[in-house]
Design a binder for these strands. Structure first.
Ligand SMILES: [Zn+2]
Length: 292
DNA sequence: AATGCCGGGCA
DNA sequence: TGCCCGGCATT
């Protein structure tokens, strides 16, 4: 009987801690009791998605416009505007006056619509009121594609693509400015789930194999199921990124691991479902489940 | 403010 | 070795 308290104590302690971290007093017993989620879970996976698609609408409109103008434009990614970070960090934007010109990928002419006119704090352009919160049948899916010369990476969230650009391309670049925004572009697919037609260039990847796609799936699943062993519909082989690793043999000692480009357990499952985190995450170590 | 995780402590 | 957390870097 006394052992009981011994067991409970740490649990309670953790709950209190969690409550602190959560900034509110939820979960006062075991984490599993989780009906009071109510307003928790502000953002994750699906939310991200909606968030993204929210600010995508303007760009989507642009894409549509440009598309309708030239019915047979091979590459949709003719523009790339800078989207401020989603959510609240509004004023930040302060994008550097002149980002070092994109790695001469595409001709600077077809490049972004002169940033001077719009982008600034722009993005305030009104879009067509055609997708009112009522019918979501033709929900256009937006993906983010890397515009680095020979990289065709596509992800579902802008955070992902930014991380990708940052880690893969801007890795050993001196500029500490957040220029990731200039190396990717949003493209809009006209369908809901399957990745329909893009010129095959764009579809360099089966999409289902896109780690981010999967990740999103996982996130969504947990949102829906909210429980159970997440069975990731993973493709047979693991997706390794064989990076050329143009790094001279000079790794100091602990460059503090570049932030992976995907959400880890904590964010995916949320504080409320800590039990589902991988052990490493529970221990505040490097995630082993969504490792990069 | 939230996340991710290293370094270090404790049993 | 498993577990936990302070604190810092990064987002
Ligand atoms: Zn993890």
């Amino acid at each position: 009987m006394s052992s009981m308290s011994e067991i409970m104590e740490p649990v309670v302690a953790r709950c209190l801690k969690e409550a602190k971290e959560l900034g509110e007093s939820a979960c006062y017993n075991k984490p599993i009791c989780y009906f009071r989620s109510r307003k928790r879970r502000p953002s994750s996976s699906q939310d991200d998605c909606s968030k993204d698609s929210q600010m995508d609408e303007c760009s989507a409109a642009l894409v549509l416009m440009s598309l309708s103008c030239s019915p047979h434009s091979p590459n949709l990614n003719a523009f790339s505007y800078t989207s401020t970070s989603p959510g609240s960090s509004s004023s930040s934007a302060s994008y550097r006056s002149t980002p070092s010109p994109p790695p001469r990928a595409y001709s600077p002419q077809s490049a972004p619509l002169s940033s001077s006119s719009v982008s600034d704090e722009g993005i305030v352009m009104d879009y067509y009121p055609d997708d009112l919160p009522r019918k979501k049948k033709s929900v256009t899916r937006i993906v983010f594609q890397c515009t680095w010369p020979s990289c065709l990476k596509i992800t579902n969230t802008c955070e992902s693509i930014e991380a990708h650009v940052r880690n893969e391309h801007l890795k050993d670049q001196i500029c500490g400015d957040a220029e990731e925004e200039f190396y990717y572009t949003e493209i809009e697919l006209g369908y809901t789930s399957p990745p329909p037609t893009l010129s095959h260039r764009d579809m360099a990847r089966p999409f289902h194999e896109d780690p981010d796609y999967q990740r999103q799936l996982v996130g969504t699943m947990r949102q829906n199921l909210l429980m159970g062993p997440i069975s990731i519909p993973q493709s047979p082989h693991k997706i390794l990124k064989l990076s050329p690793r143009p790094h001279s043999p000079k790794m100091p000692v602990s460059p503090r691991r570049i932030r992976g480009e995907n959400k880890k357990c904590r964010k995916v499952y949320g504080m409320e479902h800590r039990e589902q985190w991988c052990t490493q995450c529970k221990w505040k170590k490097a995630c082993s489940r969504f490792g990069d």
